Amino acid sequence: MTANTRVLVVTSSILGAHGQSLGLAQHFQRVAQQRGDLTLKVRDVIADDLPHLGLEELSSWQVTEEERTAEQRELAARSDALIAEVLDHDVIVLAVPMYNLGIPSQLKAWFDRVLRAGKTFRYTENGPVGLVDGKRAILLGARGGKYAGTAMDSQTPHITHMLGLMGISQLDSVFAEGLNMGEELKETALSDAHQQIEALVASL
Rank of each mutant, 00 (worst) to 15 (best):
T124C: 07
E125D: 14
G127Q: 06
L163G: 04
T156Q: 10
G178W: 12
L200W: 03
M162G: 07
A148C: 00
S169L: 15
H161R: 14
S173I: 15
L185K: 09
H158P: 00
T156G: 00
A176N: 04
R136Q: 14
K186S: 14
T150Q: 04
S173W: 06
P128I: 11
M166N: 10
G130I: 10
G130Y: 09
A142P: 04
E198D: 15
E177Q: 12
S154D: 00
G134D: 07
L140V: 07
H194S: 13
I197W: 02
T124R: 11
K135A: 02
L163I: 06
K135V: 01
L163W: 13
S169F: 14
A193S: 08
F175L: 12
N180F: 05
G145F: 13
G130R: 12
H161P: 00
E184T: 13
L179P: 04
G167Q: 05
L185P: 01
S169A: 15
R136C: 02
N180A: 14
A142R: 10
E198V: 12
N180H: 07
A151V: 12
A189G: 03
I168L: 12
L171V: 15
D153E: 08
A137C: 05
M152N: 13
T156Y: 01
V129T: 13
K186D: 05
A148K: 14
D153F: 13
G178L: 08
L165N: 05
A189Q: 07
L179T: 09
S191Q: 15
G167S: 08
V129Y: 00
N126R: 10
